[in-house]
Design a protein around this nucleic acid. Structure first.
Lengths: 103, 103
DNA sequence: ACGTCATTTCGCGTATTTACGAAACATGGA
DNA sequence: TCCATGTTTCGTAAATACGCGAAATGACGT
């Protein structure tokens, strides 16, 4: 995870609706959730949600898979792990432990 | 670290110049670095840098302290830790380990 | 081929972000 | 007090992000 990739991921998460979408995807599990079900759960217009899902996908934070007629979006935990590693390696004082006293 | 706070921090880091400033502050250590020294090192206009430093401070990612005539900016490792904790608790599948196979 | 459901793309108006120079403000030394 | 240094605020112009409805695309059942 280099700086441009991290920036895309930070930007994707730096928006209330997108972060809510992503957290909901995480809670719903790795099996994925159809886009329209997310729209219902979060009361979002289809076109609005689609734009946010595209942003999350461009940032590598979600993956897609067609299932019958619908497209299931699933969180990409590796991307989250990459972000966490970036923060610990690049944004903590040499030792990652400086940022996580509890770990 | 709740969602609005995390969004502010993500937004602050989701910009090439600001992330470069923050990483430089981290490398320079907790003692802090004068703003104009950052401007020289990164070739930034004073007013541009000032805006970015203000954004980082509003997001809680840096702290300031006057020292003689200059203002030293220092990274706030607790904020980074809070972001990491948010990602591990809210954006991983129940168990934080899902995002960090190596830990 | 047709209609329908699921999703994306397009076009628009509006709001926010960004960089910059000029000016203002703050601090400390002569 | 006056001046130089360090930093922020202000005003402006260009770029980007946002939400929405309308229209287009894609996939399936009949």
């Amino acid at each position: 995870m280099d700086q441009p990739l991290a920036i895309d991921a930070f930007a994707a998460l730096a928006h209330d609706t997108r972060l809510s979408v992503f957290r909901l995807l995480v809670r719903r599990g790795p099996g994925g959730t159809p886009a329209m079900e997310l729209a219902r759960l979060l009361d979002l217009r289809p076109s609005t949600l689609s734009g946010h899902l595209s942003a999350l996908r461009r940032a590598g934070l979600v993956t897609t898979q067609r299932h019958h007629r619908e497209i299931r979006y699933a969180p990409n935990f590796e991307a989250v792990g990459g972000l966490v590693a970036f923060l610990l390696h690049e944004c903590c004082g040499g030792k990652a432990g400086d940022c996580l006293p509890g770990l």
